[in-house]
Simulated assay, not measured.
Amino acid sequence: MNLSDFDFTLPPDLIAQEGLAVRDQARMLVVRPSGPFEHGGVRDLLNHFSRGDVVVINDTRVSRARLIGRKETGGKADCLIVSDLNSGEEKDVLLRGKAFKTGSTLTFEGPDGVTLSAKITQWLGGAKYKAMFSDASLIERCARLPLPPYIKKNLSEETRYQTVYAKQEGSLAAPTAGLHFTPQLMQELKDKGVVFAPVTLHVGLGTFAPIRTENLEEVELHTEYFSVNPETRNVINLALKEKRRIFAVGTTSVRCLESAMDGSWEGWTRLFIYPGYKFKMPWAGMLTNFHLPKSSLLLLVAALTGWERILPAYLEAIERKYRFYSLGDAMLILRGI
């Protein structure tokens, strides 16, 4: 099984550049183990989730970690902070463009006129450097949310790239399946008896990084922090004991709990899930978006329900002009267990 087996052609005009005005008005394609695919909307979750179902959500919050400024020469400086924003004045950063000189200074300005500078202190290889910021407390005022490279438009509202239940700061990308929920939809599901169980997995650079190894057994993902709080542990354990259905909202929720099932409820994971993986959780299904070809996210979806089922679903979604990627439409996978 090779990476090139998980490819498809996507027309560029189907890559969503902005979210819908009302989050839960997105379309949703339903994939069952067999039979025709079903076409509807995200609010149809009210018909698919039942009393007692547990829905696992990732409550990570996207950090304002991207800075756009100037070099000393006047050229553009595009900086992504990849270390903890609360870790002091010196940060690990990724800088786009030609090589930057150690000792040079970058300058950034916030919308309120505040100025922040960063001196490059060390080259760490590739596009990664260490930089000493003049005042790390000003980063929040000068920075913006990092967006995936395939989104070319600036968002009119940054909150559109945060889930309504985002709580734990630390991600470089949103857990995008969760972007479809509104407070009203969540309350309606709770009123029906559905239980939401928050976990935390801070989405890192691996979400944007393409897989470069053809042999899937040789793939290594970037490490990402995960945590499952005691209340959610109790909810999951009780649901398992009572044999109630457990659903995941997004691939990050799956990876978080699958990582926790290895014996630790908190830590760092580089778990790579691809077809052939033996799931530890008896997932009843997953709500997810439509993912990039040959991506780790697509491979996880294929592992959950089979590539022979997912590829025809993607081709039908393309034919019916579903909106793809982070700000696009949704897919509900029902495993029938």
Rank of each mutant, 00 (worst) to 15 (best):
K71L: 08
K243G: 04
V55L: 07
T252D: 03
L238Y: 10
D53Q: 10
L29I: 06
D112N: 12
F108D: 02
E38Q: 12
N289E: 12
L298I: 08
V42S: 01
E169D: 11
K192L: 05
S296W: 01
E242M: 06
F226K: 10
I151A: 09
E218G: 03
Y274S: 06
T73N: 14
R70G: 02
Q184V: 13
E308M: 09
A118C: 15
V228A: 02
A284Y: 14
P198F: 10
D329Q: 04
A303K: 06
C142S: 03
H222K: 05
M1K: 13
L299Y: 07
M281E: 04
L85A: 05
L155C: 13
K153Q: 15
V235A: 02
T182A: 13
M1F: 13
R309Y: 01
S137H: 13
M186S: 12
R233N: 12
V114A: 15
P210T: 13
K128D: 09
G263D: 10
V56G: 00
L85D: 00
S87I: 08
G35N: 03
P149N: 07
N2Q: 12
Y277M: 07
A239M: 04
P36M: 04
E157L: 06
P148F: 04
G52P: 09
T105G: 10
G285C: 11
E89A: 14
M331A: 08
Q25T: 07
Q184N: 12
P111E: 11
F290D: 04
S83Q: 09
L145E: 01
K76R: 12
L311D: 04
S134V: 09
K278M: 13
G276C: 06
L185F: 10
G276I: 03
A177G: 13
T176N: 12
P312Y: 11
R70F: 04
I273A: 05
S326N: 08
